[in-house]
Amino acid sequence: MRRIAAFLIATAALSAPAMAQIAVGATVKDTTGGTVGTVTASEGGNVTVDTGKNKVAIPETSFAQTPEGPLLGMTKDQLDSAVETAAAENKAKLMAALVPGADVRGTAGVVIGKVEKVDGELVTLTSEAGSANVPVSGLALQPDGLHFGMTAEEFTAAVEAAKAATSGQ
């Protein structure tokens, strides 16, 4: 039984293509030979490619290794377009979620406040400590709702500091 298991493991290892680590600084080419961009990082199973317009994290498994370096099945223009389309879709989803009364969670996942109003690129968040304007770009839409990059304690301290600064003027 052990010999069969060892044989199956060895066979699987031989049939699985070995993926060489993609080196930082490598030039990524497309299937037509055009340059897609340069690898700026490779970790955690993702490779970051700088197209000159966008920096994109792409799964290592999306690349083929050739003697000339990593190969991607998208051109630079296709990759840039996909990134920009995804960013626009994510922004639209975020803006749709920014409705008065929506909970906003902090970095620890705890609700730090609620959306009071949205005015262009600023969102007024209200908590027990008071209200604060935060940039839309500081918010993220995650599966459990809106998130802001502070803990509840940090948000409360920032609101209280802002109140103290405005009352001292």
Rank of each mutant, 00 (worst) to 15 (best):
R3I: 00
R3N: 15
F7N: 04
L8V: 15
L8R: 05
T11Q: 15
A12L: 11
L14A: 14
A16W: 14
A20K: 06
G25F: 07
D30L: 05
T32I: 02
G33Q: 12
G33Y: 07
G34A: 07
G34L: 09
T35D: 13
A41T: 07
G45Q: 10
V47D: 02
D50A: 09
T51N: 10
G52E: 11
G52Y: 12
K53F: 09
N54M: 15
N54C: 06
V56E: 02
P59Y: 14
F63D: 03
P67M: 12
L71M: 05
G73C: 08
G73W: 06
T75W: 12
D77C: 07
D80K: 03
S81I: 01
A82N: 08
E84M: 05
A87D: 04
A88F: 05
E89T: 07
N90L: 14
K91G: 06
M95Y: 04
A96N: 06
A97I: 04
A97Q: 09
L98G: 03
V99T: 15
P100Q: 08
G101E: 07
A102E: 06
V104C: 01
V104D: 01
V104F: 00
G106Y: 02
T107N: 07
A108L: 13
V111I: 12
I112L: 15
G113R: 01
E116A: 07
K117D: 13
L122M: 15
